[in-house]
């Protein structure tokens, strides 16, 4: 039987303790999303005013909302939509930001000016009116509409950052050398520039993911989505409007909040691992150590594998 070979990058990510932890957390979340609904016997939307605002109990693992809906069900069922939404919006926004940012940086001249102007426009337009206008044009409602809208709103600020990074890379000697060797523009962008931008692009992705999830709830409220479909952002939104904090109903926001935080934590660890793995200089050799040493390794930035030859 042929041994399965994981692709090189996956192996690197699994080898690095930070990304390994991140992947583990994410795997856990995804697992929860997949099988959780089977354990949540309650319909997340069912409301029962008699059972409203109840603290966690065996009956309602995470308690109930002000409407009497089961929080656990909301978190677990909502996870699916939240994750999908975050993933799709982040991918869309980051892809657009990367393409436009790098194109602007590498082409320079009019193309750069044009894309810059576009970025500025999108940054300056107030989000809410923009969304209202868009919603006026889009007849369909639902997940993919949200994804599109979020992508449109969130690409601009990352595009600017990626553009700067690409610009500084463009002037580096190794890019000039590739050009002098006859490398085509296409290969320079994808083969030389982008591999050096991986960690920044990944960071952009995570940031948009997080913002998308939180923005989602607000947008739903504006009528762009359906507040009926459970999502973490929605649960959080309702908890806030119903003064859950003031009422001391910690369960209604801690639960979805923790789920979101845990997901982002996993992504952040993954990001830290990607940082190290994408820069060969930071692929340190691991020295075995006790738990304290390993925990420290997770939190502290890595030391380069070897001091640079030119340091005196």
């Amino acid at each position: 039987m042929k041994r399965l070979h994981a692709p090189g990058w996956l192996r690197l990510l699994l080898a690095n303790p930070k990304s390994r932890l991140g992947l583990g957390i994410l795997a856990f979340i995804v697992l929860l999303t997949a099988i959780g609904p089977f354990f949540a016997s309650k319909d997340p939307n069912a409301f029962n005013l008699l059972a409203a605002r109840q603290a966690p109990s065996w009956h309602h693992l995470f308690g109930t909302t002000d409407q009497g809906s089961d929080v656990f069900a909301q978190v677990v069922v909502g996870a699916r939509r939240s994750l999908l939404l975050g993933f799709a919006a982040a991918t869309l926004a980051t892809t657009v930001a990367t393409i436009l940012g790098v194109l602007a940086a590498y082409s320079g001249g009019l193309v750069d000016e044009g894309i810059n102007a576009l970025i500025n426009i999108f940054l300056v337009l107030p989000t809410i009116p923009l969304l209202v206008v868009i919603s006026g044009f889009l007849k369909a409602r639902g997940l993919w509409t949200m994804v599109l809208v979020l992508g449109l709103v969130l690409w601009a600020f990352e595009a600017r950052i990626l553009r700067s990074q690409a610009m500084s890379l463009r002037n580096r000697d190794f890019v000039q050398a590739a050009k002098a060797a006859g490398e085509s523009t296409h290969r320079i962008i994808f083969g030389e520039l982008m591999p050096n931008m991986i960690s920044r692009i990944a960071a952009a992705w995570v940031l948009v993911f997080y913002i998308a999830l939180l923005t989602d709830a607000g947008l739903e409220f504006l009528g762009l989505g359906s507040l009926q479909k459970p999502a973490w952002g929605v649960t959080l939104y309702w908890a806030q409007t119903n003064s859950a904090v003031l009422q001391g109903e910690w369960w209604s926001f801690i639960a979805p909040g923790a789920a979101l935080a845990l997901t982002v934590l996993g992504l952040t660890f993954l990001l830290a691992g990607i940082d190290e793995v994408s820069n060969p200089r930071l692929r340190t050799e691991r020295v075995g150590g006790g738990l304290a040493h390993r925990l420290t390794e997770l939190i502290l930035p890595s030391r380069p594998a070897r001091p640079r030859a030119e340091a005196s």
């Binding site: 000697d173 050398a177 590739a178 030389e192 994408s278 200089r281």
Partner: peptide, 29 residues
């Protein structure tokens, strides 16, 4: 033209792509 006129850059570190091996740098041209 590029196959007949070539350049050696000043900064030995900057003129090589940090995420690529030596082999890549020579194989590409």
């Amino acid at each position: 033209y590029r196959s007949r006129v070539q350049m050696i850059f000043q900064d030995p570190f900057d003129s090589l792509n940090p995420v690529k091996t030596v082999r890549h740098h020579l194989a590409r041209p």
